[in-house]
């Protein structure tokens, strides 16, 4: 029957390994911290961008402007055409007067002063409320296509969807995602390289010790375990530092947004899921790097 080594022994030996090369360990842990912080930042940007899009999609209302001369049967026909689309929540008809009233409310009093009532635009319009389903650029294209097809229906004047702006937003998010992914991979790889090198140096510095352990009957896994735990500890230390950095950034950014833009956004830069991800991710990065190093250099 094989018996596992005592946890106390393994941890003690791992701490001794850390203590014997504190600077190298600190550099490794900080590299992991930096990598995780940047990965976390990118993740936050993406998470919040997708939140923003979701909220955009939630209140997606598209006006379908009709010609002044549209008759009631025309309006009914257009409405029937609109309702054929999936995801239409409601269709509300506004008379030119109602539309003018609404536009008037959107204007500031200064702008309205001395303005002829007839100068305020007013046009019969069908306000179409759509279900939130804008998850990608494809959805935006589909919406634009649908709007274009509506334009060919009799009596329809204009269907402004704002698709151009949405297209830009999606493109920006996609660029951020790609850049973030590439940078994250590069940073994590360099962090792993640092841990890999630290463990390798530790293994070289303890070649005699490794040989002695082997001669007294230690199994390869018994000899390797403290080195693996050392890597995981470096990762854990990096994760803790990354959490502190992200926490500080979170507070700073929130303060900045509130003060400069007088907005009180209900965004969260540090959702619980991300904290769990960091706590698991750091040690996993450290463990993987040390396992690679030990596998390559610790021959028993």
């Amino acid at each position: 029957m094989k018996r596992a080594p005592r946890i106390g022994y393994v941890l003690h030996q791992a701490f001794l390994l850390v203590r014997s090369s504190p600077w190298l360990t600190a550099v490794s842990a900080l590299t992991i911290a930096l990598a995780l912080t940047l990965v976390g930042l990118f993740a936050m940007v993406l998470v919040n961008a997708s939140h923003l899009m979701h909220s955009l999609g939630e209140s997606l209302t598209i006006p379908v402007y009709l010609h002044e001369a549209a008759t009631t049967p025309d309006v009914k026909a257009v409405e029937a055409q609109i309702r054929q689309r999936k995801g239409v929540k409601s269709v509300k008809f506004l008379t030119p007067q109602q539309d003018r009233e609404r536009n008037k409310q959107a204007m500031t009093p200064e702008l309205l002063e001395g303005l002829d009532e007839a100068a305020i635009p007013g046009q019969p319009v069908l306000e179409v409320e759509l279900e939130a389903d804008l998850a990608s650029r494809g959805d935006v294209e589909e919406l634009a296509k649908w709007a274009a097809s509506l334009k060919s229906v009799k009596s329809v004047d204009e269907v402004p969807t704002g698709a151009e702006k949405l297209r830009l937003l999606f493109a920006l998010v996609e660029i951020a995602r790609t850049v973030g992914l590439v940078l994250s991979i590069v940073l994590l790889a360099s962090a792993m390289f640092f841990v890999f090198s630290t463990i390798r140096l530790g293994v070289f510095a303890r070649r005699d010790e490794i040989e002695i352990l082997s001669l007294v009957g230690a199994t390869p896994s018994f000899i390797r375990l403290p080195f693996l735990v050392e890597g995981a500890l470096q990762g854990l230390a990096g994760a803790i530092v990354a959490m502190l950095l992200l926490g500080l950034l979170h507070l700073e950014l929130r303060g900045l947004v509130r003060d400069v833009h007088l907005l009180n956004l209900s965004w969260s830069l540090m959702p619980p899921g991300m904290i769990a991800w960091l706590v698991l991710g750091g040690p996993t990065v450290g463990l993987t790097a040390s396992a690679l190093s030990v596998g390559r250099y610790l021959k028993v």
């Binding site: 018996r3 005592r6 106390g8 022994y9 014997s20 010790e209 002695i212 352990l213 007294v216 018994f222």
Partner: peptide, 29 residues
């Protein structure tokens, strides 16, 4: 096994050096 050059681990105390032979067996503290 005992060697001419003792082969003790310099970073570990006398107690820890001797304890190695038991630690590898997973014996309790």
């Amino acid at each position: 096994v005992v060697f001419q050059d003792f082969r003790l681990i310099p970073r570990r105390t006398v107690f820890e050096n001797i304890a190695i032979s038991l630690e590898i067996l997973g014996i309790k503290g």
